[in-house]
């Protein structure tokens, strides 16, 4: 089941966007937001239940994409990392895989290391075929 089909993935993205766009705190990191605040941002654009936002935030916390902290009787949330760092992580994992001889099969990259001899062989093969 693709998350895109269920719509949950789309909701998770919307919640993450809201958290990423939260006003930064003094240290420059994205500030904490309560469920009510996230719900406020989202309901400006769509009809969404408060409990749904809570569920989605809970899912994101379990996925380690969001950090949660107790504030009084409620929880408040913020992104585990900014968007750039998460993008870098998604790509870095793949690059590490490519660069190391320790192929752990977590990801299978399309093409790994290429030496100069490899590149020359590729050019030569293409020249021969075209």
């Amino acid at each position: 089941m693709s998350p895109r089909r269920t719509g949950l993935g789309e909701l998770e993205r919307a919640v993450m966007e809201a958290l990423w766009d939260a006003p930064t705190d003094t240290s420059g990191a994205a500030g904490w937001m309560t469920v009510r605040e996230v719900h406020g941002v989202l309901s400006a654009k769509r009809e969404i239940a408060y409990t749904t936002v809570m569920t989605v935030l809970d899912r994101l916390t379990r996925k380690d994409l969001v950090r949660r902290e107790r504030e009084g009787r409620a929880y408040r949330y913020r992104p585990a990392d900014d968007r750039g760092a998460m993008t870098a992580e998604a790509m870095r994992g793949a690059l590490d895989q490519v660069a190391s001889s320790d192929r752990t099969a977590a990801l299978v990259a399309f093409v790994g290391e290429a030496s100069d001899a490899d590149r020359a062989a590729l050019r030569e093969a293409l020249a021969r075929l075209e």
Binding site: V98, A99, S115, D116, L122
Partner: peptide, 22 residues
């Protein structure tokens, strides 16, 4: 396709003998 995927500098590219790609 292989060539296109090599377009950018590949990190830790090794010199010398042909490897897996060859």
């Amino acid at each position: 396709a292989l060539e296109g995927m090599l377009d950018a500098p590949v990190p830790h590219a090794t010199l010398g003998a042909g490897g897996e790609l060859s």
